[in-house]
Design a binder for these strands. Sequence first.
DNA 1: TAATTTTTCGCAAACGTTTCCGTTCCGGAA
DNA 2: TTCCGGAACGGAAACGTTTGCGAAAAATTA
Lengths: 338, 338
Amino acid sequence: MKNHVTIKDIARELGISTSTVSRALSDAWDVKRETRDKVLETAKKLNYRPNPNARNLQNKHTGIIGIIIPEFVSSFFPNVVLGIQEELARENYRMIISQSNENREQELENMRVMEEYLVDGIIMSVTNEGGNEAEYRNLMDRGTPMVFFNRCPSIKVSKVLINDADMAELAVDHLIDTGRRNILHLGGPVNLSITPMRAEGFARALTKAGLDPEGKVRTAGIFIKDGREAMQRIIDSGEPLPDAIFAFNDPVAIGAMKALKAAGKRIPQDVAIVGFSEGSMATVVEPQLTTVLQPMKEMGREAARLLIRQLKAERHVEPRTVYLDATLNVRDSSVAAE
Amino acid sequence: MKNHVTIKDIARELGISTSTVSRALSDAWDVKRETRDKVLETAKKLNYRPNPNARNLQNKHTGIIGIIIPEFVSSFFPNVVLGIQEELARENYRMIISQSNENREQELENMRVMEEYLVDGIIMSVTNEGGNEAEYRNLMDRGTPMVFFNRCPSIKVSKVLINDADMAELAVDHLIDTGRRNILHLGGPVNLSITPMRAEGFARALTKAGLDPEGKVRTAGIFIKDGREAMQRIIDSGEPLPDAIFAFNDPVAIGAMKALKAAGKRIPQDVAIVGFSEGSMATVVEPQLTTVLQPMKEMGREAARLLIRQLKAERHVEPRTVYLDATLNVRDSSVAAE
DNA sequence: TAATTTTTCGCAAACGTTTCCGTTCCGGAA
DNA sequence: TTCCGGAACGGAAACGTTTGCGAAAAATTA
């Protein structure tokens, strides 16, 4: 089938040794300028492509970075991956992506496959089931560096996340500024690392405004369904309706909106809604959703940078946590259109 | 760093040669059952993992399939990739994904990288810019088999697509059945292979119902913005408003809905809307969108199967085109909720 | 001019497998 | 007893690179 031209072909063509060709190709110092140019020239002429397998067999590394994300059906992770790809490409790393489908077992399986294929490192965001901390440790101890983003385990490891607490606080500040007082937080899954962070920012904002956060947090989840059900429970409970909702993420916010609209409530007049982690649906719902836009690509870039730093380091490098800032996009779901 | 155990370690441990170990591992016929078991046992004990580089260096293939998709921010392509992954995994192929960002140049670059990396084959969906047909040919002639899905070039090659024309016809039939007579089609980009197919189904349905498709097709695009602008042009033109819209895809449908609602029109009472290629936004918009649900995972699986068939074949295999059926999900945008 | 250094290159081993080709050992047939 | 054939295994080459070491040629210094 395909018969690729090798370093030997170049050597034969020029009547020199393969070692010289190799050195010329890798721009070594001990090869004459003239011969190097000739090598480069005939390499181009013959359309030479280095064989990555042979190269990696020598170098003991594959040049491949594994990416494991919970899903890529929502737009968040794909956007992060874009950033990762951008940064990896400039360092000539390639990536293989796999998705754990929010499933702890699948995540483990993906890790195994990636280790088997000798990825140089792994960038991942954990399943909302959590619980694989020990395996992360093992994998890293066995020599595969890891960097986490967005959803991170509670172990000591490099992470990049947005300043969830601060951004949540900012979002709730916005609700308070526009006159809301009875604000509820529809929180995420309890075992997700970011869940308490957003709740904390929520509480901080309330406290700062002299409001009591006690009892204002309800666990919802991460899907539209979760938000709708949580909101429905509140409506059915007969307790006085809040005048604002700070949701764990956009789908939960949208679910809450659905429940409220079904109950005949007006948004934002009766209840203002703020989401988190802006996705493609934010401008599609009606009213358009006020939400926190995360710097997704930047997050990916930063994660890639952290990993590359570890890969290039001679000796052990201390894990580092990078916090990124997000922005609040104010839309009609929190402030009535004029 | 990481020091993987090799076939030699097993050989030394057992006092046999590496060739025997290799044969035992690959289940060759000329190795005694007893020694094979011992090899397998110590392999497991030492946690042996074959080095893919060494193996591929011998076998002249990488076991990697390249996936090139225009984007993975919408949910369509990721879902297809899920199907691909499923099928490839069972044949022990891995994949590397890259995205062309709807950019012809980027697509070419991705192809180059993949060829350089010696992927065994490529599964791709072309950019909406099109125009790389010659390069596909070259790549294939140089020995890398390709399979296309959804967006396919007009050259002779294996493809898997849904029966666009038939499904479009079905969707428009539905509009006609519910009493619509003045139906417009907001079409896709002219250089996309599926654009004329959907337009054809549209025309067939009209003709079948005794309506004249002449002048009923307007070019829109693929994004929300495209749909809104196209619809706005129609509204501004002063021509009598259609009583139904068959959009090229969901975003275009949603864009049209936005323009109509902004103009004070009611959906579906004044104008019914049907989209295509159901995405995550279909049930988020209001009213919820009637649209054609494509069998995304199945599409991926089928593409993978086609490619694997080519890879396993000894000699040339004829390109094949596989058509898949979709389903019409009827929602409130085309039929008023009772 | 001789001695020494520098430049430039080739040889060969190595990376971890697979696989072709032998070799040894055995039982059975002649 | 000799010969043959099969079973089970080892030796070694090969895949396409990289790289340490040494050697020849050129340039510098004494």
